[in-house]
Each structure stands twice: as structure tokens, then as C-alpha cells.
Computed example of a mutant assay.
Amino acid sequence: MKRADLPHSDCGIAQALGVIGDWWTFLIVRDVAGGITRFDGLQRELGVSRRALAERLAGLVEHGVLERRPYSDRPPRYDYVLTTKGEGLLPALIALQDWGVRHVMGDGALTATSEDGSAESRRVHELVNRKMPDVLLERHDGEPVTPNAAGVWTVLFFFPGAFAPGTQGYPPGWADIPGTKGCTLEALTYASRGADFEAAGATIRGVSTQRPDQLAAFVTHARLSYPLLSDQDSRLAAGLLLPTFRTAGVDRFKRLTLLVDPDAVIRAVQFPISDPAGSVDEILALVRGR
């Protein structure tokens, strides 16, 4: 069925489903966002037939969700990458993942953490040996940067939210959500161990879905010596399918930490984290023992 043939043609949901409503199509968007951009890689990851994959890739290109970028002339081969239009699907991808984890795989409870051994925990730990996506995040001072520092080991700690006094406060009911407490303590503990991480050859970066101005206010308030990065557009969250939860209309990270090597490969994962301050010393030990 063509999009023009859809009933309720004035309905945005119906029109969107006309483009990406197919099972394989949305999974293709998921994997392209995660850095699998070539035909053979997508087929290997999805287990779909070559014909079905070719048809869906062609449809996504036709609708402007993906664009083809040649990487070989003989024979002609292409990378499939998200367009700006395609990147607009990333929040929907994250929302669908959160809904599936919370309401299909879970009991519906709102939480900022997970259980050891859960499907979500296993999925996050499978990020080990995964290459970091090629995305840019906005630093708290407005500078676009890669999540991991080039050529050095990087500790990326993801946190639900930290707010400076006098700024927009915590969302209603924040303290009642399991796993949200401890963001300020975690950030300050990393700051106090900064010299130790530097001596061990690693740099520290914090990541949140908060706006850069909110992060800048917290950096100033807490006097942090390392940058905080904003993933407010869900580029990194979707690229790695990181665990999130939604409250007060905002998708937020569940607390986790990634250790990334100088070649941008994830070498260790901390998730779930029940002791925010203690996790800093644990990741420092991993850095020293690498």
C-alpha cells in the first residue's frame, strides 16, 4: 500500500507508519543508527533475505529517511546513513525501546535502574567490544565534540540528571524513582579522583540528556574539572541502544558507565550501578588494570 492510499491521510501517525511501520524497516533504522551501514552487515545482523532488505532500503531512501553514500566504485557499493529526516526518528526509537523494556519485558514500574542478569542488563553488557557510533554531542559550553576523547582512554558515565540550585529543579516525584539519587555525589566523586584517572591515562566525561545550559550551570555550581555532554537529541542513546526511562516528558539515561579505549572501542561496562560513588573507584581500578 502506498502512503497516498492510506486511510485517514490527514493523520500523522498513519502517514508515519506508511513509511516505517513494517517490522524490518524499523529494525533497519535501529541498526543504521547503531553504525551498521552496509548491506551485508545489515543482512547479517537482521537475518533478513537480500530481496526483503533491498526493498526496504530502497523505500527508506525514497522517503528520505536514509541516503546512500558510495564507498566503492567497482563494484558499486554504498553506505546507508540517516538523513536529518531519519534522525528525527531517534526519539521514537528510544521511546519504543523504553516502552518494550518497561511494559512488555517488565512489570510497568518506572525505574532508573535495572536488575543484575535482566535482559536489559545483558543487552548493555553486550556493548563490550562494540565501536562507538560516529556522532557529535554538545558539550556544556556549546562546543560539538565526540563522546570519547581521541587517542586516549575515556570514562563515559551516564547519569539521569543533576541540577544546580536556583535553576530548573528536579521533576516531580524524582526522589521516588529508584536509581535517580546520587548524581551529584557521583559527579563530585569523579572530580575528586580526577588526578588519579589522569595519572592512569584516562579522561572523564559525563553524559546526560539535559540541555547544555543546564549542564553548564551544574558544572559551574559543582566546580567540575571535566566536561559534561548533552545527548538531548538521542543520537548516542539510539546509536548504542542505551537504557533510558521517561519522566516529566523527558527521556533520561539510567545510570551506567562505559570504558572506551583510544580506538573508540568499548572495553568495559558498569550496569546496573547501585552505588554511584563506589562505582567510581571500581572503574578506576579497571583503568589501572587494563
Rank of each mutant, 00 (worst) to 15 (best):
Q43C: 12
Q43Y: 00
T37D: 15
L66F: 03
L46Q: 10
V101S: 12
P76S: 11
Q43L: 07
P75C: 06
R74T: 06
Y80D: 03
L93Y: 03
G41Y: 03
H103D: 15
A52Q: 05
R38Q: 14
R77V: 06
Y78M: 06
G88I: 10
A52N: 12
F39K: 08
D79H: 10
T83L: 01
L96P: 12
V65E: 02
V104N: 07
R74S: 08
L90P: 03
Q43D: 12
Q97W: 08
L66M: 00
L60F: 02
Y78A: 09
R77K: 14
V81S: 06
A58W: 01
Y80G: 00
A95T: 06
V65N: 07
E55G: 11
A54I: 02
R50D: 15
A54Y: 03
T37R: 06
S49N: 06
P91F: 03
S72A: 12
D79N: 15
G59P: 08
S72L: 09
L57C: 06
A95H: 07
R38S: 11
S49R: 01
V65K: 00
D79P: 11
P76N: 12
D73A: 12
Y80F: 08
R44A: 14
E45D: 14
R77T: 08
T83K: 00
R74Y: 06
G100E: 15
L96W: 09
